[in-house]
Write a protein that binds this DNA or RNA. Structure first.
Lengths: 286, 286
DNA sequence: GCTGGTTTATTGTCCGACAAAAGAAATCCT
DNA sequence: AGGATTTCTTTTGTCGGACAATAAACCAGC
């Protein structure tokens, strides 16, 4: 008894709608009409210009991240799944390869393709993190995100203080200047915030630590998002950033570590108060 | 007769002799155009039972990790590449999808597929780390590996001290017992070593930190390898492991952090002395 | 020299077929 | 009947060939 999971886009059960299999076998003339409103048909949320297999992988990945598909769940067979997405089996298979490369699913002959146990997910993969943030991530996930940030960034700041080069310092300074000019209300200002922290991770000289920047960036993204939603103006982050920068510039590792620990700790506090203050509001972003 | 497959942990310098494998299957048609000298043979290192696209992805990934293919380098076109590997374009494309999912290559129409800049590589991906360790004992990479271990493990031990559950403790205890029984000379003993450290990362309760276990495991793998190569008997790692375990068991976060910092520091020292002691052998590869 | 079409090389997508693996079922031998 | 063996069946894996879409490169015209 195959208890298969279907790839439906909305809550509507696929219910073999009339238009569902509208000439899947039809000639490939069936170009995708712009704005095709027919539900159940074409790949939902597929932006033109992006690749089909990427869109499909993303769609399934988001469903897994949202626990709509749980570990152990079996995906429908390739032929059926390809039909549901209204794409060729080739495109669907390439999507599954992507998911498998990120540890999210496993395929075996006869057994089919099923969602892997959570411990195997490459949860530090930037794309995977993006999928998790796509829908409302669990409180635990955001907490873990900050947990890693509290572990990484003070250490990284200390390393950066001793190992930075001139260009590292310039990158930090530029980002800091942009932050001061634009504040965190604009997208550019928030990008500068991320750039500042990324510059520090790069300055460690350890490319494995630098690879954690996507996780850090994700946590920062959430912080600023929550701050932005909370009506009351948050504390000004600039002085603490400057303190970190100064300590790194003076090659004072201990000060840099402490300053960064303070910064991250405050960011965590802000996020927590914002989160508990309006946890009901945490619905879908975007 | 159990047809047991030897699970030789790949990672050993791929000396894989059996090249005569090939013979993908009795194909329907004679492939192989006349003018093709088949440079390098069909698909080297493809174990039967593994998937073709995985083997190809691994092969290319290793070449990238070994800097045989450098960032910016363009891979040959899909048709030509598929011919070189003696596989279909489909299989080759799925391999490229895997590489792209790990940030190692980027494909664009007309431009072709090229190796991505190093900063985009998902270098914390367990498979990617495996590719790096396959052929490249770059001193810098191993140093970075230990750098991340020095950052992660003391912090993780402190967290584990406060957050561990009974089952976490049991996992650590079991691993420690196996280590004591088998030492590090056997593969099982080394596996127990890795299991001990992994149990600590799991006990943090932070799944993002736990996801770093592959990096830590890789570093441990290198340590034991070097220790094994160095003729003189290394220090006994067990007392230090026990100290970490005891501190965690007593929920003493500070002691756990310090004990773990000591353990990792000594492992790093051992690795460095072993490494410098036979640097001639290590650098001869390139 | 620049602008704007045209060519062209390369990846992207589709289709239909067969191979291989492995669970499930049927069969056979004792 | 029971267990081992063989056959069936389902599902992914691989193949080859075709066409579409895209963007770089090229060419023509002003």
């Amino acid at each position: 008894m195959t208890d298969r999971v279907e790839h439906q886009t909305s809550g509507e059960p696929a219910d073999t709608g009339p238009a569902a299999k509208a000439s899947v076998a039809g000639k490939r003339k069936a170009l995708r009409p712009a704005g095709d409103p027919v539900a159940g048909g074409a790949m939902p949320g597929h932006q033109p210009g992006r690749r089909l297999h990427d869109s499909i992988a993303r769609g399934i990945g988001i469903r897994i991240a949202a626990e709509d598909l749980k570990p152990g769940d079996m995906l429908s067979g390739e032929i059926e799944a390809a039909e549901q997405f209204a794409v060729s089996r080739t495109a669907y298979r390439e999507a599954v390869r992507i998911l498998a490369a990120k540890g999210m699913v496993e395929s075996r002959t006869k057994t089919g393709t099923r969602v892997s146990p959570r411990a195997r997910w490459h949860i530090l993969d930037p794309e995977v993190i993006g999928w998790f943030l796509e829908t409302k991530p669990s409180e635990g996930f955001v907490r873990d995100l900050f947990g890693i940030r509290q572990m990484v960034e003070p250490h990284a700041a200390a390393l950066a203080a001793t190992s930075h080069t001139r260009s590292d310092l310039e990158a930090m300074g530029d980002a800091l200047g942009t932050m001061a000019r634009l504040q965190l209300s604009s997208e550019e200002g928030r990008a500068a915030d991320r750039a500042f922290h990324q510059a520090i991770l790069s300055a460690t000289g350890n490319e494995l630590i630098a690879a954690l920047s996507s996780s850090v960036a994700a946590a920062i993204w959430w912080t600023t998002l929550f701050k932005h939603r909370a009506q009351r103006p948050p504390r000004d982050p600039l002085p603490e950033h400057r303190a970190v920068f100064e300590a790194i510039r003076l090659r004072d590792a201990d000060s840099a570590r402490q300053a960064m620990a303070l910064l991250v700790g405050h960011a965590f506090e802000d996020m927590q108060t914002s989160l508990t203050g309006q946890s009901a509001r945490l619905t879908k972003v975007r």
